[in-house]
Simulated assay, not measured.
Amino acid sequence: MRISTSRTRQWILAPALCGVLITGCNTSGGGEAAEPEATPAAESTPLAEDQLRPLLLSSANLGTGYVQVRAETDTGKYNDIVVQGCPSLEKLGASGDEVKFASKATVTFAKDGTATLSEELHSDRPTVLSSKLRSLFGAYTACRSYTMTAGTTPIEVKIAKSGTPKLGDEQFAYTSTMELPSGAQVLKTLAVRKGNVAVMLVGAPALVDRHIEAAVGKLPADD
């Protein structure tokens, strides 16, 4: 599976962002398309991107030391990142279009010039959000480890399920430990669905745990 993402200083986040954060995964392997889902008459419809953007975290929500990072425009910069050794992720990459949501909005922050915190909001019908979140997190937690190659440098990645807060309607989380040349780096990916919107945070576990309640608190109330 080949990974591409245009986030500033985020190439090391690729295993967490690809798939779960829908930033553009693809693979040459095969995959079965998901079955179309029925739409219950009472389900709320997806919010548009311009409706999601005001719901994103801001520097004011996070506190001192956070600076919003602008996304880079060089979309081909990270095309040399490849994941191997996890069949579930290969299948996920092959059917990437099937797990995209109706709309999304994103933002990334740097904390004191070192740690990063990325947020994505996704909106779709509640049953679609639920089904696809389960598929995404199921794919990532199905493999306890895999290898990510950046250029010619192989990086071992270990995955572990994580505890989740009692927020929203559904919660999903896992941690990624990457063995980088400079040492191990641990990232947490946490998603909470509330009605027809899901918030996903990726970053240092302490930052994700610290700000998830504020992120969910900005979501609209359930119908």
Rank of each mutant, 00 (worst) to 15 (best):
A16Q: 13
D112Q: 13
Q171S: 12
L13G: 08
G163E: 08
M178Q: 09
K218C: 06
D97M: 09
Q185Y: 14
R125S: 07
Q84H: 13
Q171M: 09
S162F: 00
C86R: 03
E72Y: 12
A34Y: 12
W11M: 11
A204P: 05
D50G: 08
S58H: 10
T189Y: 06
K91A: 06
R7D: 08
A206Q: 08
D50V: 11
I22D: 14
L187T: 06
L62T: 01
G217C: 05
F101N: 04
V216T: 01
V128D: 08
S123H: 04
V128R: 10
T152D: 11
A110I: 13
T39Y: 10
A198L: 05
S130E: 13
T75S: 14
P36V: 08
T8Y: 12
D74N: 15
Y66C: 02
R53S: 09
T164I: 04
T147F: 05
R144Q: 14
P181N: 06
S95E: 07
N26M: 14
E213P: 00
A150Q: 13
P36L: 12
G31A: 04
R210N: 06
Y78H: 15
E120C: 13
I81G: 09
A160H: 03
A94P: 02
R144V: 08
R70E: 14
G29E: 14
